[in-house]
Simulated scan of single mutants.
Amino acid sequence: MMEAIQAAIDTVEHECGVRVLYAAESGSRAWGFASPDSDYDVRFVYAHPRDWYVSVFEQRDVIERMLPGDLDVSGWDLRKALRLSSKCNLAFNEWFGSPIVYRQDEAFAADIRAVNEACFQPARALYHYLSMARGTYADYLGSEQVRIKKLFYFLRPILGCRWIEQARTQPPTRFAELVAAPWVSDEERGWIAAIEARKAVAKEGDLEGVPDWLRQWMVGGIEHFQRIGASLANRADVDPQVLDHVLRKWSKDAAA
């Protein structure tokens, strides 16, 4: 699969006349709890030569490829990526925390991580992850029997909320790092590890009951973060000149 991913990135660069500056895995494989049949979700940032950005009408700023072998390859143009970063786009932030990196210019990745950090908005980020947790609970975890995998689609964002509450920074992309945080108790780590062990041997559609104590923990987490979200101060908007500098720097010789 690695060869297929590298070939797909090379093809994008050749066919579109761009330079892929960063490409990484997104979704469940990056989070650390993929199923054996999970898709490969490759996300990337690319840049055109600078003249492409000097145009009366803006052009398409997304490249998408659905390839055989459950390979989903898609990316954002650098200008689009910077605009979204300026609004604290959490999906984009997670790309740059992915433990599975397929291609990167290290200096570029460092520049983007600095921008992402400067643009991080704790309250907005907390509400993003809270919405994910609340939606997963409402859609998949309200019944007596639930799919084990869906528990992790709740646990990851709710622990992301706790990270933001405590650290005021972007939560790690890897679920294991969220669980290892000092504000997660040994008791919580213990029962999370037990659920992970059951998931490792379960089939995709296997169901299990949710004990009352776990349901109370999930509902309590939702209520707590809904209550404190408004108290998290947002940072001031980033200087647009910082974003412009990154765009000019990395679009200058993008096709070289």
Rank of each mutant, 00 (worst) to 15 (best):
Tyr40Thr: 08
Glu117Val: 06
Trp217Glu: 05
Glu204Leu: 02
Ala256Pro: 14
Ala181Asn: 07
Ile9Asn: 03
Phe154Val: 09
Asp105Ile: 06
Glu187His: 15
Pro36Asn: 08
Val18Thr: 10
Trp183Glu: 05
Cys16Asn: 10
Asp77Glu: 15
Ala81Glu: 07
Ala230Asn: 04
Val210Ile: 14
Asp61Trp: 08
Val184His: 05
Pro172Lys: 00
Gln216Ala: 14
His128Thr: 09
Thr136His: 10
Asp253Pro: 06
Phe96Met: 01
Arg168Trp: 07
Ala233Tyr: 04
Ala254Met: 07
Arg227Met: 12
Glu223Val: 13
Ile112Ala: 01
Val101Trp: 09
Gly160Asn: 00
Arg227Gln: 14
Ser231Glu: 03
Val45Lys: 13
Ser185Lys: 12
Met66Ile: 15
Arg174Asp: 04
Leu232Cys: 04
Met66Ala: 12
Leu247Glu: 02
Leu151Gly: 03
Gln6Ser: 15
Tyr102Arg: 04
Ala123Phe: 00
Leu178Phe: 08
Ala194Lys: 11
Gly160Trp: 00
Gly160Phe: 03
Arg29Pro: 01
Leu214Thr: 05
Trp163Pro: 02
Lys203Pro: 00
Ser35Phe: 14
Ala230Glu: 08
Asp72Met: 10
Glu13Phe: 09
Leu232Thr: 00
Asp39Val: 13
Gly97Trp: 12
Val219Glu: 14
Tyr46Met: 13
Ser28Val: 05
Pro172Ala: 02
Asp212Asn: 09
His245Tyr: 07
Val246Cys: 08
